[in-house]
Amino acid sequence: MRMTLLVSSAGRRVGLVECFRSSAAAIGIELEVLACDRDPQFSAACQVADRAFAVPRCDDPEFVETMLEIVRENGVNLVVPTIDPELAPLAGAAHRFRASGAHVHVSPPGVIEVVRDKLRTAQVMEAAGVPVPWTVPLEAAHASAYPIVWPMFLKPSGGSASRNIKVATSSADLPEAPEEPMILQQLLIGPEYTVNMYIDREGDLRNAVAHRRLRVRAGEVEKGRTERDPVLRRLAEGVARALPLARGVLCFQVIADERTGPCVFDINARFGGGYPLVHYAGGEYTRWLLEEVAGLPSTAHDNWRAGALMLRYDAAVFQG
Rank of each mutant, 00 (worst) to 15 (best):
M3T: 11
L5Y: 09
L6I: 11
G15H: 00
L16I: 12
V17A: 02
A26G: 11
E32S: 07
L34Y: 15
L34G: 06
D37P: 03
A45W: 09
A52C: 10
A54H: 13
V55G: 00
E69F: 08
E73P: 03
P85M: 14
A88C: 02
G92V: 07
F97W: 07
S100V: 15
A102Y: 09
A102M: 11
H103P: 01
P108K: 00
K118M: 14
Q123E: 12
E126C: 01
P131H: 07
P131N: 09
V136F: 04
P156K: 05
G158Y: 04
G159Y: 07
S162P: 03
N164C: 15
N164L: 13
S170L: 10
A172I: 13
P175L: 15
P175K: 10
E176S: 12
P181E: 14
I183H: 04
L187N: 03
M197D: 07
Y198C: 05
Y198D: 00
I199G: 00
L205F: 06
A208L: 06
A210F: 05
E220T: 15
R233D: 13
R233C: 03
V239N: 06
V239K: 00
L243R: 02
V264T: 08
F265H: 04
N268L: 07
F271N: 04
G274T: 15
H279C: 03
G282L: 10
G283E: 11
E284T: 10
R287M: 08
L290S: 02
E291V: 05
A294P: 12
P297Q: 10
S298L: 15
W304C: 05
A306L: 01
L311N: 13
L311Y: 12
A315K: 05
